[in-house]
Design a protein around this nucleic acid. Structure first.
Length: 437
DNA sequence: GCATGATCC
DNA sequence: CACCTGGATCATGCA
């Protein structure tokens, strides 16, 4: 049992990593991390209830205005929370072109509505209504009701829920608090720390693509990561065959979507949907990518073949996931299995890496007696800490060191570090204090 | 209790 | 030819 890399740091570091399938010992990571997750839950995240209350007023006002404007356009009232009534309004009463049919009717989700949003002025209003209603119900009212007597929200963190080994947060989920757009910042400003403390957030930079690079040993990706290049720009240069200075923002965006798509096992159809381009172009991007990164193509092919042969795929640490879908006669189910076979080793290994880093960090906090600084949240590739001001420099140094060195891949792992007095106004720390050893 | 659609990585 | 991006939680409508 004390085989664990965490009770014996040297054990893990002494393992040869270059040719071994299992570069580190992950025996019972989940068993060891359970206590840490329970502690995170008990510590909780301090909330400024005034920020929530003020936002609720603002949001309710906006919702009222939006619904009045929508009803004014159409001349009668409907329940804007009912997708069925929205579908009837758009596709029957207004006779707008409907997209694909679902089980029960025509879809009215964001992707579908964005395609027809220029055809009627209420469509953007409906989309805004949905966004703001979600904010009100899930991220304001519901969250406010979950503030406990200590002024904090105590989420529950679970293992053994996600099939990839990721940690899950629920009751409430603090892993999907909005971050994009102005609402994201406004909501996150309600997540605070006590006086004399500061919030530190550290996230892995491109961990999934680094894991893919490690597995595939793709020389172009290795080179890019070793030189710490902008990976999406680098991909854009390959698939568009241009030098960096000629790559447009749009081309970089396309490359970024292709990069993520590769990890998910995306099809030309899926890529065409998310990029809003035709399937032929999407297929061309995927083909070009695989031509330019032949070792990735080889790795993906091998990944599928081995999964079919063995019935499972595995992570860096040897954690297996059985994928019976690969043997299905149904093409849809089988393709889904193939995507799992591609994605699981990558997502699962990333999850392992951060869980190991969490354990290392926890051990080091204990050893260094940094008792006032607490890990309070994990969001898949990111850790959030509530930190005593005096301990800040030490915490940052420890967390960065542990996260970047927890396992040795064939390329470096990198983190970016942010600090702030609340979760909505975080600023990146580029220059580390070199004072403390 | 399922379907839908919103949020996150 | 169709349709097919991995992993989650949560609120609401509706049968």
């Amino acid at each position: 049992m004390n085989n664990s890399p965490l009770s014996n740091k040297n054990n893990r570091e002494s393992v040869s990593i270059s040719d071994e399938l299992h570069p580190y010992n992950v025996d019972n990571i989940d068993g060891q991390i359970q206590n840490l997750l329970t502690t995170m839950s008990k510590v909780g995240f301090l909330i400024d209830v005034e920020v929530i209350n003020n936002l609720e007023v603002e949001v309710e006002d906006l919702l009222k205005k939006l619904s009045v404007r929508i009803f004014h356009h159409i001349g009668y009232d409907i329940n804007l929370n009912s997708s069925k009534q929205i579908a009837k309004l758009l596709y029957e009463d207004l006779e707008l072109p409907s997209g694909k049919k679902k089980k029960t009717g025509f879809s009215t989700d964001e992707v579908t509505l964005k395609k027809i949003k220029k055809l009627h002025p209420i469509i953007p209003l409906i989309l805004e209504y949905r966004t703001v209603y979600k904010l009100k119900s899930t991220y304001l009212e519901s969250l406010r009701c979950r503030i406990e007597e200590d002024g904090r929200i105590h989420s529950t963190f679970l293992l053994d829920v996600a099939s990839t080994g990721r940690i899950v947060s629920r009751d409430p989920n603090l892993q999907n608090i909005p971050i994009r757009g102005s609402w994201g910042e406004k909501i996150r400003k309600a997540f605070i720390v006590p006086c004399e403390k500061i919030l530190i957030a550290i996230d892995y930079s491109q961990i999934d693509l680094r894991v893919l690079t490690h597995f595939s040993k793709e020389s172009k990706l290795i080179e890019a990561f070793k030189q710490n290049q902008d990976i999406h720009l680098s991909t854009a240069m390959e698939i568009f065959n241009k030098k960096a200075s000629d790559i447009t923002a749009d081309e970089r965006r396309i490359a970024k979507t292709v990069n993520f798509g590769i990890i998910y096992g995306i099809s030309p159809h899926g890529l065409s949907e998310s990029l809003e381009i035709n399937q032929k172009q999407a297929a061309y991007f995927i083909k070009t990518y695989l031509d330019k990164y032949p070792q990735v193509k080889q790795y993906l092919d091998l990944s599928r073949q081995n999964a079919l042969k063995n019935g499972y795929t595995e992570t860096l640490g040897g954690e297996k996931r059985y994928i019976p879908e690969l043997k299905s006669k149904n093409h849809f189910i089988r393709s889904s299995g193939e995507r799992m076979a591609i994605n699981y080793p990558i997502q699962g290994s990333s999850a392992e890496i951060i869980k190991l880093a969490m354990l290392d960090i926890d051990c080091e906090f204990v050893r260094r007696k940094l008792s006032s600084s607490k890990m309070i949240l994990q969001i898949h590739d990111e850790l959030v800490f509530e930190v005593e001001n005096e301990e800040k420099d030490a915490v940052i140094k420890i967390v960065k060191e542990k996260m970047e060195n927890v396992v040795k891949l064939i390329i470096p792992l990198k983190v970016s570090i942010k600090e702030g007095v609340n979760w909505g106004e975080m600023t990146e720390i580029l220059k580390l204090e070199m004072a403390i050893k």
